[in-house]
Design a protein around this nucleic acid. Structure first.
Lengths: 228, 228
DNA sequence: CGCAGGCGTGAAGAAGGCGTGAAGACGCCC
DNA sequence: GGGCGTCTTCACGCCTTCTTCACGCCTGCG
């Protein structure tokens, strides 16, 4: 049973490693959010213990990025006790939220509970591939024929929304809310603009699409077949 | 979304009911562990909020009894903060453990997290299939002999109305209301036009129909046999 | 046998959405 | 403060889609 510990304080990492290994878990530790996302994709742990107070990245952002490609249980460890922090982390996709200092027995029990719930394996691919196009959801890196493609944050967000829902018809409103936020829903000109740059950068043709199909009046559809 | 609250204190029951109903949940409340187990079996709630300090039965026993027949998420509410209590409840099968007093926002967030996990079991949308014709309702994708068929929103809406009611006679008015909206009901020319394009795109013949039969003066009927 | 209504067929006008290209506004880093 | 990348907005021409109409056929009825 592999567990990934993401925490910037070495003594906490050490303490967690000791306790977890004593209970038969296999433990990997990293110190930054970025490493955490990469390790979640690479090492494929079955449980992640995530400290919210990381130096390099907001904790909810780490959760969101891991959730882009994995359903692995995430238990948040945090010194912050405010409800807003808890709500934000849980709604970002965390499974549980434990405030420091916590008892190791409680943490282990919550880990067991989280693992018990996730009985089945999830087949989600960390890096969906479509022919020459590869989308590394962990590193947020897109390559075409092996060449990295530079995308702005909005462009990447749109691509992620499309590529993680292959074949599905995604409405204007759904895409706008997912990429731009809850307050959006009618700004179809944004979509047209960014779909255009995406098509251009990914070498797609609107009149003979191989990746993104326009569903007039409704939305867009990612039609490329996953090939990895 | 049905929630069952098991708590012996009436004011807590009332407070939870108010908060939960304000957020769109359907709430049932009981005051004893025994009633809780019965209600969990009978009312089939999708989430249970369980107070540990019940007068008639030990909290972990309630959890165990419910777990004997249901995987419904259980969030424990308790005044006891000891690790031993938390471990016991979680290992008995609880999904989460919240100590009173708790913030309602946090409880709601934890409820969403618990529901999200359980609901994660892909709410399998049926994909009606009729020989070579396949209607993927989740993706809103129609394929004929494996080839995607492009339909306009109105065409798809009409097909969905027909294909999800196989064998049933659907009147002009019913179809118009469903596809075009409440304000319609007499525009049978619309129906004729779109039934025609549907037949053309799906390879059906009006004079020898295999999919859509005209019921003169009344409406239309989807006669294809579901085959999957 | 003639007629009327409903249906299938074909087509065309109109409205709105889309792709395209570009330019201004904004925020951020140096 | 300046420069750059990114986001937002606009105008234009084209194309899809919706809506409407006309015509011929069939059916049922008187």
């Amino acid at each position: 049973m592999k567990v990934l510990v993401v925490d910037d304080e070495p003594q906490i990492r050490r303490a967690l490693r000791t306790s977890l290994e004593a209970h038969g878990y296999e433990v990997a530790t990293v110190g930054t959010g970025d490493e955490g996302v990469v390790a979640a994709a690479g090492a494929r742990p079955e449980l992640i213990l995530l400290d919210l107070g990381l130096p390099d990245m907001d904790g909810t952002e780490v959760i969101r990025r891991i959730r882009a490609f994995s359903e692995v249980p995430i238990i948040v460890l945090s010194v912050r006790e405010s409800q807003a922090d808890k709500v934000a982390a849980l709604d970002a996709g965390a499974d549980d939220y434990v405030t420091k200092p916590f008892g190791i027995e409680e943490l282990l029990a919550r880990s067991r509970a989280a693992l018990r719930r996730r009985g089945g394996e999830e087949p989600t691919t960390p890096t969906p591939t479509f022919g020459a196009l590869q989308v590394d959801l962990a590193k947020q890196l897109v390559t075409l024929d092996g060449e990295p493609v530079h995308l702005t944050p909005t462009e990447y967000g749109l691509l992620e929304a499309l590529a993680t829902n292959p074949g599905k018809l995604l409405t204007h409103q759904w895409l706008l809310r997912r990429v731009w936020g809850q307050g959006y829903g009618t700004e179809t000109t944004y979509l047209r603009t960014y779909i255009r740059t995406l098509r251009k950068k990914l070498g797609d043709d609107a009149s003979a699409p191989a990746l993104i199909v326009t569903e007039p009046g409704v939305g867009y559809r990612w039609i490329a077949e996953p090939s990895g």
